[in-house]
Design a protein around this nucleic acid. Structure first.
Lengths: 333, 333
DNA sequence: TGAGGGTTTGGTAACGTTCCCACCCACTCG
DNA sequence: CGAGTGGGTGGGAACGTTACCAAACCCTCA
């Protein structure tokens, strides 16, 4: 019941294992008649090469495996990123080991360690907020890393992000252009890199219009839809409540959606597109990012590093897109 | 610049590689003082074990890697499945190799071959419609396979599906209970297993009510939203048009959504939940499946097989849930 | 006929690890 | 005091493959 090895094939074909290796790997210098015999034996035994053993012995191309570590694979954003990474890898005959960090630094380290213990040729990483010094150890020497979606502070590696700041600025500028002057910011913890950038973009837009920042309109640390809803209630209770919201991620956008029209209708622009956003009432105006492009760019960078590119770390910044659907305009009851 | 090996650690610690192996793998029978010396050398060199070499030599537990092959990782349904598989694997100290078939049998075979060439301990597969005889070859001997979402015809392995037929029956029964008598079926190619089951469930519901099947109300082979919309136009043009639709997957549901209210409002129940379905107008009634449960069940089965369970192949069928939100009721303009 | 060149083939060692066994040493006990 | 015990350690081989080199073969041409 053992799986057949090259030795078994060699015995059956009456040749040496070396010759079998040559045939199976498509190397030249084998007589056609011999190759045919070997091929027959391979099919007869249902032989399949053990690529782990192969990669252990070979030096030149590595294991033809890369690791992809995202925050949460169930998040459609990362799922699409993963898909385009897998597509690029497949085109290059490479497999993908996948993992989710769930934003836990410990799990990130564990999984990265498990990946490198498997001798991955490279790593695409959505880094957690923790330090990434461990990636500089000798165990990772020669394993290129590419960060996606956010940079790893203090780690000088290729990074692919979208221009969160410009996107947020665009969103808020859109609201201001439609006559709003009191625009609130609703975001997750400002320590999260993307959230910090988006908040900065929000402030940029205000500054450009000469509108002073009002701390009462800025809410950080909203981690759930319920917290976002509560924050909205708080904003409505202000003596001078906002007439428009910029919601800094899709969870928050969803959270405020319920209470958008009561007691008074509020305009809203959200960061991150939602499926069906155009069918909501009102149709949702959003800043949309392209996760497929993110994943594709990251994979492209990684594979050129694997191919031997040793130039200075690159930083790719992709643009966002404002998708106007109506919810950003002035709304009256 | 070479990565350190056990030999390097052994040399530095002044012991044999064997002793390093024991320390690194946490085996007993090493004097505490020796273990400390080795640990120090490990940290000094930043040594990390090569798990590929390890798994090549070891027999008992395999490579601690499983393969997961879905139709399309960008599909949120499969993404959530993948997440729960990865979670289960992580709990067991196992890594996950991932791949997408894009419903191409050739790609399926390629990726499965690449997985087994890496000596995965098991395989979770969303099978394409093609034959799967290749999984019976000696190369796959001893590699358990679990099919998920749909069975692989002619392959006697553990399978986890949802009860598509009962779900569809439930959906149509719901429409009939709300006074509809002319209910149309809109589905993808009936050769796709899930679609066949859902169509059967549709017919079951009609039969139970004594309503004769009307071929004019049944549309197969709708592969895009546009085709679904066109099919709806055709149905509306009938002398005796339907008053309700059962749409057999989310793509089709989305396709008909646009034209649901004009010229006359139609009721609809869709198979497969959509995010934001409750915020659409009308709020969409759907048959919802639980991809996390599917993935979890598949992983559970696979790991018990890997642990040595050799009982007859099991077939797990999960229930669906009817989520009533209004769109299934009788609708008037 | 024999030297020279090319093609085809096989033997040996090595990749980094662990299994199996033998060894060494310090004790204990008769 | 010698034989037995048991924990701690190391040597050699092996997992399945490929790099490297040497050998065997065939053919051509002087």
């Amino acid at each position: 019941m053992r799986r057949p090895t090259m030795k078994d094939v060699a015995r059956l074909a009456g040749v040496s294992p070396m010759t079998v290796s040559r045939v199976v790997s498509g190397e030249p210098g084998v007589a056609p008649a011999t190759a045919a015999k070997v091929g027959q034996a391979v099919r007869a035994l249902g032989y399949q090469r053990n690529d782990n053993a192969r990669h252990l012995r070979r030096k030149s191309p590595g294991t033809a495996t890369i690791g992809l570590l995202v925050d949460d694979l169930a998040n459609p954003f990362y799922a699409r990123m993963a898909r385009s990474v897998e597509d690029e890898a497949h085109r290059r005959g490479c497999l993908v080991l996948i993992g989710s960090t769930h934003d836990e630094p410990r799990r990130e380290r564990e999984v990265v360690a498990a990946f490198t213990a498997r001798q991955v040729d490279g790593l695409i990483l959505v880094p957690t907020a923790a330090g990434h010094g461990f990636l500089r150890g000798p165990a990772h020497a020669g394993t290129p890393v590419v960060c996606v979606d956010r940079p790893a502070p203090g780690l000088a590696v290729d990074t692919v992000t979208v221009d969160n700041r410009a996107g947020a600025r665009r969103a808020v500028t859109h609201l201001l252009a439609h006559g709003h002057t009191r625009v609130a910011y609703l975001g997750d913890r400002v320590g999260i890199w993307t959230q910090g950038q988006r908040c900065a973009g929000y402030l940029d837009a205000l500054t450009a219009r000469g509108i002073p920042e009002d701390p009462a309109l800025i809410r950080h640390g909203l981690r759930t839809g319920d917290q976002a809803r509560a924050a909205l209630a708080g904003l409505r209770a202000l003596p001078d409540p906002p007439t428009a919201l910029f919601t800094s991620n899709d969870l928050i956008t969803l959270g405020v959606l319920d209470d958008l029209d009561h007691p008074a209708p509020l305009a809203v622009v959200g960061f991150d597109d939602l499926p069906l956003a155009e069918r909501l009432t009102p149709p949702l105006t959003v800043i949309s990012q392209d996760p497929l492009a993110l994943g594709g760019a990251a994979a492209g960078l990684l594979f050129s590093r694997i191919a031997g590119d040793t130039s200075a770390p690159r930083s790719v910044v992709l643009e966002t897109r404002l998708v106007e659907r109506g919810s950003g305009e002035l709304r009256r009851a």
